[in-house]
Design a protein around this nucleic acid. Structure first.
Ligand code: ZN
Ligand code: ZN
Ligand code: ZN
Ligand code: ZN
Lengths: 121, 121
DNA sequence: ATGGAAATGAAAATCATTTTCATTTGTGAT
DNA sequence: ATCACAAATGAAAATGATTTTCATTTCCAT
């Protein structure tokens, strides 16, 4: 378990809170920071483990990372431009709990994501 | 634009309506069908273009395809033994639609999965 | 049968991500 | 300050899915 290099997080912030590992790396290079691609990957993974950033997938499968408030929430993602809206889980929070109980599952978590075309696309 | 090889679609059906290109390919090989991996990829792409199949991403980024007509459902997965129960989306279905409309999104799909420990674990 | 278009697939290329491993850096004890 | 050891780093190689190339085969209309 490696700890995240703080410059990676700060770069992700500066990127507008939305970038792939490769983009964070290129950004740091352009700004003259000396860092290896491997460290960027490791740092982002560590931030994901610590739930400081979220990871989603672009349409082409590349993983993109974004700063994420700690409150539990879900995402509405444009599958064309990648624009993301954070939304409340609403009814599905209860749905997950009920379904789990109904089948005798404990310690449950859930994922839920909506994807489509945003109004601009 | 190539046309889809019908054996690919039939294999995807047989796979239970949820498989990656590599899995479809391996399945066809195992059953003695002669086909190239390239053709499997091309056929699946073509089926996606024609909206006959849906494409999503696994957590590891691999693309998975499923028949659109398949009854839509979700999964309750044991994170210890992997046991899976198919469940109805219930409240989620409406939630996704409402959230999408609220933010002006069109052509929306969604993913939702519950994971926890099953009664045996 | 003939010519051209579409389909096929083996092999190479691409590209994100992971793994390996040798080196550097940081920390704490003496 | 010195030594010892653990953690962090990064270059290079490996991995693995997907795409591209391109030569060959299959189809189809004339
Ligand atoms: Zn968009
Ligand atoms: Zn939720
Ligand atoms: Zn279990
Ligand atoms: Zn659903």
């Amino acid at each position: 378990m490696s700890r995240s290099n703080p410059r990676v997080l700060s770069t992700l912030e500066r990127a507008g809170g939305f970038a792939s590992a490769q983009e964070v790396y290129r950004l740091m290079q352009r700004e003259g920071e000396s860092i290896g691609l491997t460290t960027v990957y490791r740092s982002l993974q560590s931030l994901v483990n610590d739930k400081i950033v979220d990871v989603l997938r672009r349409d082409d499968g590349e993983a993109i990372y974004r700063l994420c408030g700690d409150a539990h929430h879900h995402h509405l993602v444009c599958k064309n431009c990648g624009d993301t809206v954070e939304i409340e889980g609403g009814a599905i929070e209860k749905w997950a709990k009920v379904m789990a109980e109904e089948h005798g599952f404990r310690e449950v978590g859930h994922t839920a994501e909506i994807f489509g075309l945003c109004s601009k696309c």
